[in-house]
Each structure stands twice: as structure tokens, then as C-alpha cells.
């Protein structure tokens, strides 16, 4: 193997540090700065979670847990921790951005070889997933940043009226 020029190695190392350690969140700083009808957004306008010191979570984080468990657990294991079949999304979100997650979920991905066929299905047509994709992302983002633990969040903010309306419209 040809050794990398020293400068390049240094750059790589710094980038790795920036992504890998300084902010282990593929979408950047997850701090909530604004909210729209009970959904929290970070400074980039990306959906994020809000967890109170007493452990109470925003409604989206809670719904995300429910919908993750219903739609993703059967491959990605409980609580985003991975299984013998699918990767631990808890780790994936340290590098994947909100956009990456949406695209992967909507269009799917395959790694097919003779020894195993890893297939992430295209879930773009599945209303039970896509109507809740922000919530699922927010939940995984909270898990990935260690803001919430395993299991069902015990306490959450009430269901925002806007959520109900959007859910009805989307689920049809």
C-alpha cells in the first residue's frame, strides 16, 4: 500500500476528529432552538428532540419510539441497538444526516453477496413509516446523542393539535 502524503493524512485525521468526536451527530448540533406546534428544530431547521431534566420528552420523540419499534425493530433491533440482521442506527446517526436518513428510508439500500443479502427496503410508499418519518428520525437522534435511554420514554408532552391534523391528512 502506498503511504498517504503526510499533509493528507493530517487533513483526514482532523476531518475524522471533527465528524467523529467533536460532533457525533450527522446533522450537527442537536440543540433545539425553535419549535413549531410541538416539533423542535435545531439552528439549521432540522428536526430535533427536547428532553427535560426530569426525563420528559417532546411528543415527536415519544411517537418516534412507537413507530420505530413498529417498523424498524424487526431488522434494526430494539431501541436502535442493532440485531443479527440490521445495523445499529444509534451508531449510524453519528455520521448520517437528516437528509441521508430520509433518502435511505424512502429509497432503500442493498448489500447483496453470496453469503448474505442485506436489504434495507424502500419504505417511501409505506404511510405507516413516511407519515412518521420525522418522529422516527427525532427519536433516533435522541438515542444516538444519549439524550434518552432504552425502552419507552416514560413521560412525554401532550399530543399537539397540529400533529393530529397532519397525521389524519397523511394517513388518509
Amino acid at each position: 500500500m502506498t503511504p498517504l502524503p503526510r499533509a493528507l493524512t493530517a487533513i483526514c485525521a482532523t476531518t475524522f476528529l471533527l465528524i467523529g468526536i467533536a460532533r457525533a451527530d450527522g446533522s450537527g448540533d442537536p440543540t433545539a432552538v425553535t419549535s413549531e406546534d410541538g416539533k423542535y428544530l435545531d439552528k439549521e431547521g432540522t428536526p430535533t428532540y427536547k428532553v427535560d431534566p426530569d426525563g420528559k420528552v417532546d411528543f415527536y420523540t415519544y411517537v418516534g419510539f412507537i413507530r420505530y419499534s413498529a417498523n424498524c425493530l424487526r431488522c434494526h433491533g430494539p431501541d436502535g441497538l442493532g440485531s443479527t440482521y440490521g445495523p445499529a442506527l444509534l451508531n449510524s446517526l453519528k455520521t448520517l444526516s437528516y437528509g441521508d436518513v430520509l433518502m435511505t428510508v424512502a429509497s432503500g439500500r442493498q448489500k447483496v453477496s453470496a453469503s448474505q443479502d442485506l436489504v434495507m427496503p424502500a419504505l417511501g410508499a409505506d404511510k405507516n413509516v413516511m407519515c412518521y418519518i420525522d418522529a422516527i428520525y427525532i427519536y433516533l437522534r435522541a438515542r444516538s446523542n444519549g439524550a434518552i435511554g432504552r425502552g419507552r420514554p416514560e413521560n412525554h408532552e401532550p399530543k399537539p393539535a397540529a400533529f393530529r391534523a397532519a397525521e389524519d391528512e397523511c394517513m388518509g
Binding site: S107, G108, G124, A125, K127
Partner: peptide, 8 residues
């Protein structure tokens, strides 16, 4: 939803 439908 539309994008997803097309893709899948």
C-alpha cells in the same frame, strides 16, 4: 410520499 412511491 410521492418521491418514495416513485423510487420504490
Amino acid at each position: 410520499l410521492t418521491i418514495g412511491t416513485l423510487l420504490s
